[in-house]
Design a binder for these strands. Structure first.
Length: 297
DNA sequence: AGCCAGGCTCTCG
DNA sequence: CGAGAGCATGGC
C-alpha cells in the first residue's frame, strides 16, 4: 500500500526540487524520470525500491516488491524525508529572506524549492570525490558507471535499478578497475581508501552526525582525498546543517559574487565571512543562490 | 586548439 | 603558513 508523506506547511515544489537529478545527466543511484523518483536501498538482507511521486495533496511513497515489513517502511520514510529535504525550515527561511532583497526575490521565484539531501554518508562522500575539479556532467557519467558496475541490482517491472555500492564492495576493488571507468588514478585511490577505512571500522560514518563541525572535519580530512570543500558539502548536503556554507566551491563563489558583488572576485575567506549574515540559513541561501545562477533570475 | 570544470596533495620558500 | 605546480579527462 502506497503511503502519503506529509509536507510541512505544504511547502514543496516537486519538479523544481528534483531538477537536480536530471540537470547534469543521469544519476543511476537516484533515478528520476521526470515524474517519478526511484532509489534502491538495502533493509536487513533484502533490497527494495522506493518511489516518490507528486500527488494531489503532497507526495506518495511506494515500495517494491510489495512488503508489510515495518522496518523497510520506516527506512523508506527516513530516506524520503532526506530526498525531499523535509527537515529544512523553509517557512522560517522565507521570513528571514524578507530582509535580504536578493534572497527575497529568489525565494519568491523558487517558492517551495528544497535542497535534497544525500541518504548515506558514504554515498555523499564518494559523490563529492567524483565531482572534485571536473565538470558536473562528466562527474555524473563516471559516478553512474560506478553504480552500475558495483551496485546491487534490483529488477522491478522489467526495469533495472541499482543501489549505491557499499563500502565493503568498493574496498575490494582495484585502482586499475576504477581507472577503466575513467576515474583518475588519484580519485580511484581516494574512493577505495575511504571504502577501506569504513569497512575496516577505522572510520564510523554513522557517528559523525552527532559530532561538531570541527570534529567531523578533523576525522574526514585525515583521509586522503577529502579536503575542506568535501567536508563543507558533507555538512550541507548530507547532514543538512543550517549554517553550512561551501565557500570554496566554484559555483557558490560565482553565485555569491554575481548576486552581491557585481561579479567581482572575492576570496574564499571573504565569502565565508560574508555568509555569516545568513546564520542558520546559509545552507538554504546557498541552494537558492545556486539555483538562481543555474536558472537565471 | 586551448581553456576550464562544484579540488586535493605535495613541495618549496 | 601560503602560493604554486601537477594531476587527468571531457566538453565547449
Amino acid at each position: 500500500m502506497p503511503k502519503q508523506i506529509a509536507i510541512p506547511d505544504s511547502l514543496l515544489n516537486f519538479p523544481l526540487t528534483f531538477r537536480r537529478y536530471q540537470a547534469y545527466g543521469e544519476d543511476a543511484a537516484n533515478y528520476f524520470d521526470g515524474a517519478v523518483f526511484h532509489k534502491a536501498f538495502k533493509n536487513g538482507d533484502r533490497h527494495f525500491l522506493l518511489s516518490l511521486q507528486e500527488s494531489n495533496d503532497g507526495v506518495t511513497l511506494n515500495l517494491e516488491p510489495a512488503t508489510r515489513s515495518h522496518t523497510a517502511w520506516q527506512q523508506a520514510e527516513h530516506i524520503a524525508r532526506k530526498i525531499l529535504g523535509l527537515d529544512f525550515p523553509l517557512e522560517k527561511f522565507y521570513q528571514f529572506a524578507k530582509s535580504d532583497p536578493v534572497l527575497r526575490e529568489l525565494s519568491q521565484k523558487f517558492y517551495g524549492l528544497r535542497p535534497t539531501l544525500k541518504t548515506t554518508p558514504f554515498e555523499s562522500l564518494v559523490t563529492s570525490i567524483t565531482a572534485q575539479q571536473i565538470n558536473l556532467q562528466f562527474a555524473f557519467t563516471v559516478r553512474s558507471r560506478l553504480v552500475r558496475r558495483y551496485g546491487e541490482k534490483l529488477r522491478i517491472d522489467g526495469q533495472t535499478y541499482y543501489a549505491f555500492p557499499t563500502p565493503g564492495k568498493l574496498a575490494r576493488v582495484k585502482v586499475s578497475s576504477l581507472r577503466q571507468l575513467q576515474f583518475t588514478e588519484k580519485k580511484s585511490e581516494y574512493t577505495i581508501g575511504l571504502a577501506k577505512a569504513v569497512s575496516d571500522g577505522k572510520l564510523d560514518l554513522e557517528k559523525l552526525s552527532q559530532q561538531s563541525d570541527d570534529e567531523i572535519a578533523e576525522q574526514l580530512m585525515a583521509l586522503r582525498g577529502i579536503g575542506r570543500w568535501t567536508v563543507d558539502w558533507f555538512l550541507a548536503r548530507c547532514l543538512g546543517r543550517g549554517h553550512a556554507f561551501p565557500a570554496g566551491d566554484l559555483g557558490v563563489r560565482k553565485a555569491v559574487q554575481h548576486f552581491y558583488f557585481n561579479g567581482r572576485e572575492k576570496s574564499e575567506e571573504e565569502l565565508r565571512k560574508f555568509a555569516q549574515r545568513w546564520g542558520e540559513f546559509a545552507n538554504l541561501a546557498t541552494h537558492y543562490l545556486l539555483t538562481g545562477l543555474a536558472l537565471g533570475t
